[in-house]
Write a protein that binds this DNA or RNA. Structure first.
Length: 722
DNA sequence: TGTTAATAAATTTTT
DNA sequence: TTTATTAACA
């Protein structure tokens, strides 16, 4: 293959990045500017043009999906297998590193990974164990605190005696949590990164080895890196300055999870030899869409600055629909999707994007009513399902009896008569003896002083687990999984649930065996490590698809966050209202508001051909009727790119005025819900609802200036506005 | 031990 | 409004 083939399909800026003679680059890649393409071609270039062996290249992403896509595209471009390339997520790579050097990292070989849900359970149990009031010290908050500390690299010992009582309590929880994790050899997501970083930092031989090994390091979505991720990259690349970072400050939407856009500046400071490349040509969206996005984002301060342009046609302006309420909004959107689909377009090319998951319901209902297939992203994923986690907990406890989290999960699932009392004794013993629950149980089983009634089920559980360990050792992974599921009694346990649910759960448990079977043939398996450990890690790190495969032709529903990195021909951004988008929690704070604006920018730039923006006059939130104002983001888009959709009264003919009252109103036009009206004193507004008849008829109007008012029709003298 | 009524809370979530 | 959690009960 001729190396020019790698450069030829690129534009000048992309070519500059891909063919760069220096390894240190910061690529500011605007939305739809070919970011992944540049990464893929860069790696191809390094291998083909510079002769770098694939095993000396490290490429880091945030999601498994991105990692898979990158691998696939490199293979397609180079037509060679990419086994030797180090491509993976931060967490996946950190995990691989820790498995290889578990002892040096102070971990058992059989250490297990806690996902967010596991972590929450551990923290909650611990707060109870400390005798704290759970309403005053919610587990979520403590969990958040712990992760935030770890993401900043702060261990308990770094946080000496805070004066603030809140901080002090959190610190105590953090400390207790760490003790449990250490004792059980459990590692949460943040710990994977932090421990990998610390091990590298404190072990010169290892650091030297990996620094030598990786001649080139590439990172995707650099704006999303947190402090530890940056420090880890810096550690590996500091002596050679061989870091190739691709990112977009305008698409930084995860600061609330510890992502630091500032790392873009840190990069420029810490790698003085770097070249800065801007990718500003957009290949995705038509002119109006791009112009709207550009205009919106200029309202943010402190940008690195970038202006996207396109050679594509101007296209259609954005359509703005002012719905009467959330029902009407959903009705409008689904109608448009139906005609789009009737025109012969694929449903999968249409997406509904919202700020919060709760908004999906209205759309789902209307889609169901119209018989349009759809898919909601962001639900429970396969390995996150309760029954699957139960089964995995059995496997985990066999692999590592110290794993208290798994022990707690299955000690009485299915119920085997081990109640709260016995558990308290176990926990107490584990705490005083500083041992695992498994060990405490073994002690208790042998203790003659304990009544047989409590001991018997414990003994049975112990025997079950020992039997599982014996009878499955040496078996292949899928067989081990199958036996474990069968012997655990989980199937019988779930059969007691309502039929449909039970059937689904049992099906999932059976599916787990197929997943294990499939996993054994993964090309990325590490021959050096036990397959079971790898499978369990895979379950935690890559929890699988949330719903049916995207092979079906479905309309796509997801949050704006989930839409990052995707594109659709037709996009609906819904609920553009103050308090919803931007969210209530962001209204007061400029920094958070700017993040909401970036989120809006991300949403707009998902659209390739047509973008609809919708907002509602009234919306039920938590069962209460609210009358939000249109989102400020709508005002930030220049009107020349916006077309207001006016179909009020034609598609939603909800006339509310009987003829007699109509005559009493000064207007010749029928007043109906959604009708725009003018009032002498309050100005313009929209009718929300009505009640009463004749001279008693009243309407509720949402005035732009004066808010929501009830008015007597007979006296209000409302003028209909076209 | 499992079900039911009451009560409080309520963004976004790559791993 | 929905959802989760807990206290009370059979």
């Amino acid at each position: 293959m001729d190396v020019t083939q790698i450069l030829d399909p690129l534009n000048p800026a992309q070519r500059l990045a891909v063919g760069s003679p220096t390894p240190t680059l910061l690529v500011l890649a605007g939305a739809g500017s070919g970011k992944t393409r540049v990464l893929v071609h860069r790696i191809a270039w390094l291998i083909r043009a510079e002769g770098i062996p694939p095993q000396r290249i490290l490429a880091v992403t945030f999601t498994n999906k991105a990692a898979h896509e990158m691998r696939g595209r490199i293979e397609a471009l180079l037509t060679i297998p990419t086994r030797d390339l180090w491509v993976g997520t931060f967490h996946g790579l950190a995990h691989r590193f820790l498995r290889r050097h578990a002892r040096e990292a102070g971990l058992a070989d059989t250490f297990q990974i806690l996902d967010a849900d596991d972590q929450h359970r551990v923290v909650r149990r611990l707060i109870k164990g400390l005798g704290l009031d759970e309403t005053r010290w919610p587990a979520r908050q403590a969990q958040w605190y712990i992760n935030a500390q770890k993401e900043e690299g702060r261990r308990v010992r770094h946080l000496s005696e805070p004066h603030d009582p809140f901080e002090r309590q959190m610190l105590q929880i953090y400390q207790a949590y760490e003790e449990i994790c250490d004792r059980s050899s459990l590692v949460d997501f943040a710990e994977l990164l932090l421990r990998a970083y610390e091990l590298l930092r404190d072990t010169p031989e290892l650091l030297g080895f990996y620094q030598q090994k990786f001649q080139h390091i590439l990172v995707d979505e650099f704006q999303d890196t947190n402090r530890i991720q940056y420090l880890w990259l810096r550690l590996l690349s500091q002596d050679r300055e061989n870091l190739f970072a691709v990112g977009d400050d305008d698409q930084s939407i995860y600061s609330w999870r510890g992502a630091m856009v500032e790392n873009l500046q840190h990069f420029q400071r810490d790698y003085p030899s770097h070249t800065l490349v801007r990718l500003e040509q957009n290949y995705r969206s038509t002119g109006h869409i791009l112009a709207a996005a550009n205009a919106l984002i200029t309202h943010n301060q402190n940008r690195l600055g970038k202006n996207l342009w396109t050679e594509l046609e101007t296209g259609e302006a954005l359509s703005l629909y002012n719905a009467f309420n959330e029902q009407d909004e959903a009705y409008f959107v689904v109608n448009r999707i139906q005609s789009w689909s009737r025109d012969g377009h694929a449903r999968r090319d249409a997406a509904i994007l919202y700020r919060s998951n709760a908004q999906s319901r209205q759309f789902e209902e209307k889609l169901v009513a119209m018989g349009i297939p759809y898919r909601v992203y962001g639900g429970l994923r396969f390995f996150e399902r309760a029954e699957i986690k139960d089964a995995l907990a059995y496997l985990r406890l066999v692999a590592n009896p110290q794993d208290d989290a798994s022990f707690e999960r299955i000690i009485n699932t299915p119920v085997r008569g081990i109640g709260a009392k016995t558990l308290d004794i176990l926990r107490g013993l584990a705490r005083t003896e500083r041992c695992s629950l498994w060990h405490a149980m073994a002690t208790l089983c042998a203790d003659e002083a304990i009544p047989t009634r409590a001991r018997k089920p414990l003994l049975q559980f112990k025997l079950l687990m020992e039997d599982l360990a014996d009878s499955t050792s040496g078996l292949e992974l899928w067989e081990q999984t199958q036996r474990t599921v069968q012997k655990s009694g989980l199937i019988e346990h779930y059969r007691k649930e309502p039929y449909e649910q039970a059937a689904q759960r049992i099906e999932n448990l059976e599916e787990l065996t197929s997943a294990a079977r499939q996993f054994e043939h993964e090309p990325t398996l590490d021959a050096e490590l036990p397959v079971l450990d790898q499978f369990l890690a895979h379950a935690a790190l890559e929890s699988g698809e949330s719903q049916s495969e995207a092979t079906d032709d479905c309309v796509q529903l997801m949050t704006l966050h989930a839409a990052k990195g995707l594109e659709f021909k037709l996009v609906f951004m819904v609920g553009l209202e103050e308090g919803l988008f931007p969210s209530l929690q962001s209204l007061e704070d400029t920094v958070r508001l700017e993040e909401e604006r970036r989120l809006c920018y991300v949403g707009i730039t998902r659209a390739r051909q047509k973008l609809y923006l919708t907002y509602a006059e009234s919306r039920r939130i938590y069962g209460k009727e609210t009358y939000p104002r249109p989102s400020r983001f709508l005002r930030e888009i220049p009107p020349e790119h916006l077309d207001e959709v006016r179909l009020r009264g034609s598609t939603t003919p909800s006339a509310i005025m009987p003829d007699s009252t109509m005559k009493q109103s000064a207007s010749k036009q029928a007043l109906r819900i959604g009708q725009r009206v003018r009032h002498v004193k309050f100005g313009e507004g929209v009718i929300l609802q009505s009640e009463g008849e004749g001279t008693q008829a009243r309407v509720q109007v949402n005035f732009a200036g004066a808010g929501v008012k009830w008015l007597m029709l007979a006296y209000a003298n409302l003028q209909a506005v076209a």
